[in-house]
Computed example of a mutant assay.
Amino acid sequence: MPDQRSFRLAEHAKAAILLHANTGEILFEKNPHRRLPPASMTKILTALITMDLIESGKLGWKDRVSVSAYAASIRGSTMRLKQGDSVTVENLLKGMLIASANDASIAMAEHISGSVDRFVKGLNEKARALGLTNTNFVNPNGSPAPNHYSTAFDMAMMARELLEKQGTTTYSGVRSALVRKAGSPPYRLRNTNKLIGVYPGIDGLKTGYTKYAGFCLCASACREHQRVIAVVMGEPTRKQREVETAALLDYAFAASKKSFD
C-alpha cells in the first residue's frame, strides 16, 4: 500500500477504501471493516444477484415483471412504479443503477424469489459466498433497519464482482436514460451519481443516503484500462461525498500511473 502519511484522504468519511480493481491492491483505507449502514449501496448486491441469474440464463433482460402493491407502495427514491405495471428486467435494473429506485429493487426481489424475505436470505448467502463476513442485509434496497450493515471493504468487493458483469456500466455510467412501462409513454431517469459526466472516466456505480447512514458512494472509474473503485461511507454532505470521492480517484490514478510508467 502506498505511503498515506502525507495525504488527508476521505477526511470527513466515517469509512473509506480505494481499490485497484484490476489487481485487487488496496491503495487507501480508513476504517475499512467498520460496520455501517450502506443505504442504497445495498442495491449493488441486489443487482449482482440479478446479473448472476441473467448470466446463467435463468432470467432474461426482456422478461416482464408485474409490480405488486407492496413494491408500488415503497417510498424514497423510486421510478414511479404503480401496482400492476409490467416492466422488463432491463428497465428495473436501469431504475436501480441509475435512479436508485427502491420500488424497482422490491419488484425485482419479489420476481426472483417470490418474496422479499426469501430474496434477502439469498443476498446474505451471496455475501458469505464472496467471503464478506461483515455484511448483513434485511432488505434489498437499503432502507434504514436494525441489523442492516456492511463495510467499505465489503462494498468494494461486491462492486468489483458486479463490474465483471457485462452491461453494468452501460446503465450505471449514464447521466440519464429513458424507460418504458407497458402501456405507458417513456420517461427519463436521472442518475443520482452527480460525478457521472463530470469526473473523467467515471462509469458508476451506486450512491446511498439516509439520515442514519449519511452520504455514501461506491464509485468506479476506468482510464487507460486501469479500473479503480472508491467507497466512502458516512459523509456529512452530498458535496463532501463528491469532493472526497474525486480526490480518492485522483490519488488512485496517480498511483497507477507511477506503477505503470
Results as ranks from 00 to 15, higher is better:
R160T: 08
Y171E: 03
T88Y: 08
R118Q: 14
L36Q: 02
R34T: 04
A254R: 10
T170K: 12
I17W: 00
K58C: 02
Y171M: 15
T78Y: 02
S100Y: 06
R241K: 10
I17F: 01
G122T: 05
L123K: 07
R80G: 01
M158Q: 10
A21I: 03
N136M: 09
G76C: 09
G208V: 00
A109T: 08
N139A: 06
S150N: 15
Y70C: 04
K94R: 13
E242H: 10
Y209C: 04
L189Q: 10
E164P: 01
M155L: 15
T151I: 12
K14N: 05
N124Y: 11
S176P: 03
N136Y: 09
A246L: 09
N141M: 10
D63V: 02
A129C: 04
A254V: 15
T133E: 08
D52R: 12
V228R: 04
I26Y: 04
T46W: 09
L97N: 03
H225S: 12
Q240C: 11
N141P: 03
E224R: 14
F215P: 02
V67E: 00
P185N: 05
G201D: 07
S56A: 15
N193A: 11
E11R: 10
A21F: 01
S86E: 13
I54D: 05
A254Y: 12
N147M: 15
I74F: 10
Y149N: 09
K165G: 06
Q83D: 03
S105D: 01
R227E: 00
G76V: 04
L97W: 07
G114V: 05
S100P: 06
I44Q: 08
L9C: 05
G60E: 11
D203F: 03
A156C: 14
Y209G: 02
I202V: 15
D85P: 11
R238Y: 07
H33R: 07
N191F: 06
F28P: 06
L205D: 07
R128T: 11
Q166W: 10
L27T: 07
G57K: 00
L45C: 06
E110H: 14
N136C: 14
L132V: 12
F7V: 08
V243M: 12
G24M: 07
P38E: 14
A16N: 06
A127F: 04
N134W: 00
V231D: 03
F119W: 13
T135E: 00
M108I: 15
K258H: 04
A129T: 10
L18G: 06
A230G: 10
R34I: 00
G204V: 08
